[in-house]
Design a protein around this nucleic acid. Structure first.
Lengths: 202, 202
DNA sequence: TTGTTTACCGAACATTCGGTCAGTTGACAA
DNA sequence: TTGTCAACTGACCGAATGTTCGGTAAACAA
């Protein structure tokens, strides 16, 4: 009660969070290397030097963004439910689509990292660890006969998560299908096939 | 017969073709914006200035590389065979995988273009034209009932060619599956589904 | 031997880069 | 009114950027 006008935010200007959020958008528009601090300053409506009041530098912005994507993915697989491998695989695909949509700018940035700095290399290593987890899951589903045996499980992993990751290229949160709609379509295509049902089937 | 030692190449050093080929490899390793002319010079084993003897500049290298990818894609769809839409779609997918494998560095570069220059914007526009062609093909197949009706054709287009394009992220020419093996696996997954056959069918 | 061409080097160019720092502004407290 | 402090500006730094240019060594032709 003693606080004056609690609805109006007392702080004007930016904080580390808003700087990161806007910076990541610019990174995704122009690419990280193609973005100058001047570009970021323009997008933030301040001068270059003001950015350094909120964050230590360009590479730290990248590091924080990449962690935000990777932390989401690892938190997800830590919550993996019990059940048959094929069902866990479907669950992980669906959750991955959800995280990709929820944290779209951060995941998009992660998917474009090439390893040009120690920051990027560290992110790539964490990503490879995630990929190994997925790979094991697909191998389990293949081993128990839930997945067609005429395609190499390593190839299945790459195609399946290549499809998931490609969503970042076109998905926009406020337009078209919801994340769950996209996940439904992806799972239908990848697990049951695009072909129209042959009229007679369970 | 009169030509002296016809097996030995008379020219030493580089030509525009070898410069392009090596440059594109470096572009894909570090990203176009992350690659300096100094990086290219090091990879070519010459000084920075020598590059300008063979090519007009950095952006021209990018333009030539992107055209090489796009020309391949447009030449392919110009050769489209006759037949039902679903069969033409499968053919285009298979050919796209082949071109992606044949011209891997060029297509990889194309898939990462963000529109930072007029060169990149022109490439993006050509790519969108290709995407529209694919989109029409999928709509045809959906209209004649060959594709399951419970998924939006626009979504099918994006998922299907998202999967194709994602191959560029991991495919390596001399290792593992051949382009046709990859296309087989992709078509099996996308059209018939990953799930093991329910024991009774066809 | 001389001249020409090919393929390159080294130094320099203007510009842009990420980053620093001394100072200024304006909202708020006392 | 004065002081405090978060938030910012503007001038600047050294390094790196893409590109240009005068010169040159080697290969070949005459």
């Amino acid at each position: 009660m003693a606080a004056p006008t609690p609805t109006r935010p007392r702080r004007r200007g930016h904080d580390p969070e808003s700087v990161l959020s806007i910076a990541v958008d610019v990174f995704n528009e122009r690419g990280y290397d193609g973005t100058s601090m001047e570009d970021l300053a323009r997008a933030l409506g301040v001068t270059k030097s003001a950015i350094y009041y909120h964050v230590p530098g360009k590479e730290q912005l990248l590091a924080r963004a990449l962690d935000r994507a990777l932390d989401g993915l690892f938190a997800m697989v830590a919550d993996e439910p019990a059940g048959p491998a094929i069902e866990r695989l479907e669950w992980v695909v669906r959750q991955s689509v959800r995280i990709l949509a929820d944290r779209l700018p951060y995941v998009t940035l992660l998917l474009r990292v090439r390893g040009n700095s120690v920051t990027e290399q560290a992110a790539l290593e964490r990503r490879r660890e995630f990929d190994r987890f997925i790979s094991r899951l697909v191998m389990e589903a293949a081993a128990d006969g839930s997945i067609r045996p005429d395609v190499d499980p390593a190839l299945v992993t790459r195609l399946l998560f290549g499809t998931v990751n490609s969503i970042a290229e076109w998905y926009r949160p406020t337009r078209g299908a919801s994340p769950d709609d996209v996940a439904d379509a992806l799972l239908k295509m990848a697990f049951n096939g695009l072909r129209a049902e042959p009229a007679a089937r369970g």
